[in-house]
Amino acid sequence: MGSDILSEEEESIHMTRSQITTHLLRIFSERFEIDDPGLDDDLREVYEFDSIDAIEMLREIELMLDSELTRDEKKQAMGISTLNQIIDYIEALAVARPAN
């Protein structure tokens, strides 16, 4: 799970948007049993993705970035409802972190 399913080249925190999307779709499928969610689908409404899933997702993002999220960063995620917003969130987190 998490970083185990990243390829060598994906382990950089500066992944492209496409790479982040591919990685997230894999997490959604393997961890949350949600296959091919629409990028702008409301995850709670359509897939019953709840607060417990959101907390688990933040842990997956920490593993993806190989970096612990601050409490403020976690709080910023609370309004997220779509996959596209998760991708935006990860891109912003990556920019705020130095490259490995």
Binding site: I52, I55, E56, R59, E62, D66, E68
Partner: peptide, 12 residues
């Protein structure tokens, strides 16, 4: 244990 702390659902 930094990144592998207990999961959100472990208590539940």
């Amino acid at each position: 244990a930094k990144l592998s702390s207990i999961g959100a659902v472990d208590y539940l």
